[in-house]
Lab assay of single mutants.
Amino acid sequence: MQRVNMIMAESPGLITICLLGYLLSAECTVFLDHENANKILNRPKRYNSGKLEEFVQGNLERECMEEKCSFEEAREVFENTERTTEFWKQYVDGDQCESNPCLNGGSCKDDINSYECWCPFGFEGKNCELDVTCNIKNGRCEQFCKNSADNKVVCSCTEGYRLAENQKSCEPAVPFPCGRVSVSQTSKLTRAETVFPDVDYVNSTEAETILDNITQSTQSFNDFTRVVGGEDAKPGQFPWQVVLNGKVDAFCGGSIVNEKWIVTAAHCVETGVKITVVAGEHNIEETEHTEQKRNVIRIIPHHNYNAAINKYNHDIALLELDEPLVLNSYVTPICIADKEYTNIFLKFGSGYVSGWGRVFHKGRSALVLQYLRVPLVDRATCLRSTKFTIYNNMFCAGFHEGGRDSCQGDSGGPHVTEVEGTSFLTGIISWGEECAMKGKYGIYTKVSRYVNWIKEKTKLT
């Protein structure tokens, strides 16, 4: 034993070699072989497995989906700052455009905790909710729209109204504003409101030439003092309507412009014939205590009207009353817009006519005020429907199939267009061939041609 100890002390290297040989010859039971080890760690190889990531292109799944990435790591994937920024906006807080917040056709661009709407022409605001041009839906104005110097929408209202708090709607500024039905039992019968379409306001006024200088022999019209197929109006439903009495009662109609003036057809009036105007009328054979009678003290036909040349060209006249009318729910003026808007309103496509005229061709006159909704007829169809001249200051309205029309005794009465609950004068009943005849239409004086003249002559002093 002493000898062994001496050998170990003198030859430590020998001992180490012996131990190493023993270990190498022993069977290893701690580690699995290569094949079995792979069965336990069965993990798919990654895209760049075996390579240094710093030297390969980034992978979106590896960089940002398996674990949260930084902007720089995302930049490695896209290799483009702009594309990385677009991805980053949604990656950080989701897609803010998912709810489609942009209105009126706006395009949404996502941002971090926010979004941006790219608005089409005519709109602005956070969600493109603000109209900035009158060309689109009248700028959301209830009545009139004008573009300011910086191309912003400025709404306005006709006389007797003021802008509401929203700067879009119009509200009454006087007790009985024009064009409004205020009798409670008839307010439910107000005709369907007309909503502004998209309009090209630059070209809204037709490029028409008034044929002022045409000389033409007097034409022989049949029954051209021209509501057939209409309905009984309720008291106060058309408070701007008046009836004219002269040699015979209810020979023509008219509309209240203001307390002192009536507008009617020029062919209705004769110099030297006494005319009485009755406002607030409903049943011409009954006294309903809503009527107001006034005498006409002055007749002003349009300066281009000449019955000797043509009885229905420039067929418009103004009547001055001896005493002002007292405005109330049964006696209310009709609204008159400017030339541009009167023309736009007419193009809405349908209007209402009213009167006490004959209820059928050569038949009896109506006792109760009649009204009828009539569609506008395109000019080409209008011209083809008659052998008589249709001037540019006239328009056609009615039904091709016949059966409904204005008729004798309705002449001078109103053709009105309702705009968001307020009625505007767009025409004056003038003439036609018979009444409600198939293929024939009622012919009306186009008020847009005469609004400046009306307003100039009827100013209240």
Score class of each variant (00 low, 15 high):
Gln2Leu: 14
Ala9Val: 10
Pro12Thr: 14
Gly13Cys: 14
Thr16Gln: 11
Leu20Met: 12
Gly21Thr: 14
Tyr22Ile: 14
Ser25Phe: 12
Ala26Pro: 03
Cys28Thr: 13
Leu32Ala: 14
Leu32Phe: 08
His34Ile: 14
His34Pro: 11
Glu35Cys: 05
Ala37Thr: 10
Ala37Pro: 05
Lys39Met: 12
Asn48Lys: 01
Leu52Pro: 01
Gln57Pro: 01
Gly58Leu: 00
Asn59Phe: 03
Met65Val: 10
Lys68Phe: 04
Arg75Lys: 15
Asn80Met: 03
Thr81Leu: 10
Thr85Pro: 03
Lys89Gln: 11
Asp95Asn: 14
Ser99Glu: 12
Asn100Tyr: 12
Pro101Ile: 06
Lys109Tyr: 07
Trp118Val: 14
Gly122Asp: 09
Gly125Ser: 04
Glu129Phe: 03
Leu130Asn: 12
Thr133Ile: 08
Lys137Ser: 15
Asn138Gln: 06
Cys141Lys: 00
Glu142Leu: 06
Phe144Ser: 01
Lys146Ala: 13
Lys152Ala: 12
Cys155Val: 00
Ser156His: 10
Thr158Trp: 03
Arg162Ala: 10
Leu163Arg: 04
Leu163Cys: 02
Asn166Ile: 01
Gln167Asp: 10
Gln167Cys: 07
Ser169Arg: 10
Cys170Ala: 00
Glu171Ala: 10
Cys178Trp: 00
Cys178Pro: 02
Val181Leu: 09
Ser182Asp: 07
Val183Ile: 13
Ser184Ala: 11
Lys188Ser: 14
Thr190Asp: 09
Glu193Gln: 05
Glu193Asn: 11
Asp200Leu: 10
Tyr201Lys: 11
Tyr201Ser: 07
Ala207Glu: 13
Glu208Ser: 14
Gln216Phe: 08
Gln216Thr: 13
Thr218Pro: 15
Ser220Tyr: 07
Asn222His: 06
Asn222Lys: 11
Phe224Met: 14
Gly229Trp: 15
Gly229Val: 10
Gly230Asp: 05
Pro239Phe: 01
Gln241His: 15
Val243Gln: 07
Val248Lys: 13
Val248Asp: 08
Ala250Ile: 08
Gly253Trp: 10
Glu259Lys: 07
Trp261Leu: 01
Trp261Phe: 08
Thr264Cys: 07
Ala266Met: 04
His267Phe: 02
Glu270Asn: 13
Gly272Ala: 10
Ile275Asp: 02
Gly280Ile: 02
Gly280Val: 02
His282Glu: 04
Thr287Phe: 09
His289Gln: 09
Asn304Val: 04
Tyr305Ser: 02
Ala307Asn: 08
Ala308Glu: 14
Tyr312Leu: 08
Asp315Val: 00
Leu318Val: 07
Leu319His: 00
Glu323Gln: 14
Pro324His: 05
Leu325Met: 04
Leu327Ile: 14
Val331His: 00
Thr332Pro: 00
Asp338Ile: 04
Tyr341His: 06
Leu346Tyr: 05
Lys347Met: 09
Lys347Phe: 05
Gly351Ala: 09
Gly351Tyr: 01
Ser354Gly: 13
Gly355Arg: 15
Gly355Ser: 07
Ser365Lys: 15
Ala366Gln: 14
Ala366Met: 09
Leu372Lys: 13
Val374Ser: 04
Arg379Ser: 13
Leu383Cys: 07
Thr386Lys: 07
Lys387Thr: 10
Phe388Met: 11
Ile390Val: 14
Met394Thr: 05
His400Cys: 06
Gly402Asn: 10
Gly403Val: 14
Ser406Met: 14
Cys407Thr: 04
Gly409Arg: 11
Ser411Cys: 06
Gly412Cys: 06
Val416Asp: 00
Thr417Gly: 01
Glu418Phe: 08
Glu418Cys: 06
Thr422Pro: 00
Phe424Ser: 01
Leu425Val: 01
Gly427Gln: 00
Cys435Val: 03
Cys435Tyr: 03
Met437Leu: 15
Lys440Trp: 04
Thr445Glu: 03
Thr445Ser: 05
Lys446Thr: 04
Val447Lys: 00
Arg449Cys: 14
Arg449Ser: 15
Tyr450Asn: 02
Trp453Cys: 00
Ile454Gly: 00
Lys455Pro: 01
Thr461Leu: 08
